[in-house]
Amino acid sequence: MTRYILRRLFAMPFLVLGIVTLAFLLTSVTKGDPLTAIVSDRQMNNPEVVAAAKARWGLDRSLPERYVIYVGNLLQGDMGTSFITRRPVAQDVLYRLPATMELVMAAMIVGSVMGISLGVLAAAFHNTVIDHAARVFALFGSSIPVFWLGLALLYVFSVQWGILPGPGRVDPRAALPPAVTGFITIDSLIAGNIPLLLDALRHLILPAFVLGWAVAGTISRLVRANMLEVLGREFILTARAKGAGEFRVIVRHALRNTMVPTLTVIGYSFAYLLTGAVLTETIFSWPGMGSYAVEAARGLDFPAIIGVTIVGGVVFLITNLMTDVAYVIANPRVRLG
């Protein structure tokens, strides 16, 4: 097992290099002058800026040399300067990352609870109306465009009925707590600011639900399949022969045996959550990496686009690795194999 982990860790830097290379190739694809990927249109006329950019990124040199300089700069944490914010991209991304993480984690929790419940229900009431209803509900989640659902729910719950707050992480007039983790929920808890915690949670409800529903479908399908397989096994018969009721059989015996593959699918759904976060953040004015990416895309802010892509790729890679490792550790058969 340790060998497996080591092998994966060893492969990581190469994959990261691959990500970086792909990103670099993207910068070279922009029509004609690579300068357009580094310096914004407005600054083009500023000879100082242009000269500085050429020096830093080696724009006069050949492609391979530019590549090496690019990687070198990246290793120093230099991802270029955003056209829009005029700040180093690395700084921008780091600043906005926690907001995305907070949203994605909340969505993962919501999605997992929904997905597992639906899957268990569908399996326990196999081939009945409940099974079909659960499956349709889950499929709906995978079919509704996230941005449209967000808009619709905002309109209904915030504008029409007024029971949930509008876009944003917190009430715009509220003072933010001192940033420890960047998660407003955790930070306000640490600061003991309960009203703010509640406000942040209420703002999280809609976006987390919208995002979570999207992954609940995949999770529920897997949970259902696993549960059905486990429910066909001998020890379920033993439990029933002992006089255990259906609820106990399903929760204490069957569900426990599906936890491992379920956790893995939850881990892998992270990718989808990151994807969906881009759009969800836009709708809910959530100041995270996703909305940053969208602003960058709209404004053709190339350094920012590439920067977000690289960071997104690396984050994704890390979460996948953690999920794979967790699976290997948690699987007792592999552990003691």
Binding site: E234, A241, N257
Partner: peptide
């Protein structure tokens, strides 16, 4: 039952 390995809950 017949097969005690599969008749007992592994976890």
């Amino acid at each position: 039952f017949q097969d005690p390995l599969s008749s007992l809950n592994p976890v």
